[in-house]
């Protein structure tokens, strides 16, 4: 199902990972790289959750946790994730709004 996200302009790779970080399915790069991508996305999700929990704890402001997703922007590429779906994209070619909307939908599949 998530394969259709590759049709979005600028999306280079996509993966769906389990709650233990194992790859469920992925497209756009070799299998061993997809496994690493899934592990990275899973680890990063846990870190963001830890930091969001602390933000919530220190500010006493509701609405931060659990976080819905995250985006890390590099010079030419970015990685975005919502739920347990993550994608690698080319920042020059992609519409981030479109990708985030597609990720949001895919995270409910």
């Amino acid at each position: 199902m998530i394969k259709q996200l590759l049709a979005v302009d600028g999306v280079m790779a996509i993966c769906h990972f389990r709650d233990d970080g194992a790859l469920v399915e992925g497209y756009g790069m070799p299998d061993e790289m997809l496994a690493g991508f899934a592990k990275f996305a899973h680890d990063y999700k846990r870190i963001v959750l830890g930091n969001a929990d602390q933000l919530s704890m220190f500010t006493q402001m509701s609405g931060w946790t659990p976080p819905g997703g995250w985006v890390v922007e590099g010079d030419g590429v970015a990685v975005a994730s919502i739920g347990n779906v993550a994608c690698l994209m080319n920042t020059q070619e992609v519409s981030k709004n479109e990708v985030m909307k597609e990720l949001e939908e895919a995270s409910h599949w």
Binding site: N51, Q54, L55, M57, F58, T59
Partner: peptide, 13 residues
């Protein structure tokens, strides 16, 4: 950086 965030939050709380 994470510790700085924690130190700020801890001291405020």
């Amino acid at each position: 950086a994470i510790a700085t965030m924690q130190a700020r939050g801890w001291e405020n709380m």
